[in-house]
Amino acid sequence: MTAVLFDMFGVIACHQPADACARLEATAQVPGKDFWDSYWGLRQPYDRGDQSGPEYWRTVADSLGVSFDERRTEALIAADTASWSEVDAEMVQFIGELADGGTRIGLLSNIPEELAAHYEKHQPWLRNFEFLAFSCRIGHAKPEPGAYTWCSDAFGLAPEDVLFVDDRQDNVRAAEALGMRAHLFTSLATLKPALAESALRPAGG
């Protein structure tokens, strides 16, 4: 293993907690499945940087048959950003230890611009990464192949010399399809031996 490429949400940062999800539904005034079907079903262009926050929420509103005025849209962007802001302190510490120990690490995250800017402002541990491949800035969002090739190019390495860590099976499989090694993240306890095993395995092995 020459380098490790980390996903952020579900690995280092936390998924949206229930109270934050409830706040989003209340702000939109559209509860339940219909809201989340639109929220996720229309998310990829927003994460990829093809849409701004107001444009994304306009498409969500249109799909739901409602409208969000400017004030409501600003509140939705704020609530959405807050819902993704919690991090795993144990993983943050581990990332710092890897960097201090000389491991080359990069970050690949599906993230819209508003949230990316929020993380850069409030999370100094991001400086541990060799690069930040935020989907909104590289023009590719996982599991699109371009997201992974952008990162291997940023490392200056062949895909097989990169270990990709993500909590979603579809993202892991996409990385493997391009030749990367990959680990489906469930916990730090299972990640550590996977990193050790990959470090001992020759490139391409």
Results as ranks from 00 to 15, higher is better:
84 W>D: 03
15 H>D: 14
111 I>Q: 06
148 Y>W: 05
172 V>P: 01
141 A>N: 06
47 D>H: 15
65 G>F: 07
121 K>E: 15
63 S>M: 11
193 P>G: 00
88 D>V: 00
203 A>C: 09
115 L>Y: 05
32 G>L: 12
107 L>R: 09
205 G>K: 03
139 G>Q: 05
79 A>T: 03
109 S>E: 07
184 L>P: 13
70 E>M: 15
43 R>G: 05
136 C>I: 13
98 L>K: 01
46 Y>N: 12
104 R>K: 04
162 V>W: 04
157 L>E: 11
1 M>V: 07
185 F>N: 02
131 F>L: 14
50 D>S: 13
198 S>N: 02
72 R>I: 11
179 G>K: 06
42 L>A: 10
56 Y>K: 12
4 V>L: 14
6 F>T: 00
173 R>G: 10
178 L>P: 13
187 S>I: 09
172 V>L: 03
124 P>C: 02
132 L>K: 01
40 W>A: 03
49 G>R: 13
15 H>K: 09
103 T>V: 15
25 E>T: 04
74 E>S: 13
183 H>P: 13
69 D>C: 03
105 I>S: 02
102 G>Q: 13
5 L>R: 00
2 T>L: 10
132 L>S: 01
151 C>K: 04
178 L>K: 14
24 L>Y: 04
95 I>N: 01
130 E>P: 02
159 P>R: 05
76 L>A: 14
19 D>L: 13
96 G>I: 09
142 K>G: 06
99 A>D: 10
47 D>V: 15
20 A>Q: 12
10 G>V: 07
196 A>H: 01
187 S>C: 10
16 Q>W: 12
105 I>F: 03
21 C>R: 14
101 G>E: 09
66 V>H: 01
191 L>W: 05
96 G>V: 11
87 V>I: 15
34 D>L: 15
60 V>K: 01
117 A>G: 06
108 L>S: 01
18 A>Q: 02
71 R>I: 09
177 A>D: 15
24 L>S: 04
111 I>K: 06
179 G>W: 09
168 R>K: 14
105 I>C: 02
133 A>T: 04
19 D>E: 15
93 Q>S: 11
167 D>G: 00
147 A>V: 11
25 E>Q: 10
162 V>R: 02
36 W>Y: 09
106 G>M: 06
43 R>I: 07
83 S>F: 08
107 L>E: 11
186 T>N: 08
159 P>C: 08
113 E>G: 09
90 E>C: 00
55 E>H: 08
2 T>M: 08
89 A>K: 06
184 L>Y: 14
155 F>C: 08
7 D>F: 12
32 G>Q: 12
61 A>F: 11
152 S>I: 07
87 V>T: 15
85 S>N: 06
139 G>P: 07
144 E>H: 12
87 V>K: 08
140 H>Y: 04
67 S>R: 12
14 C>I: 04
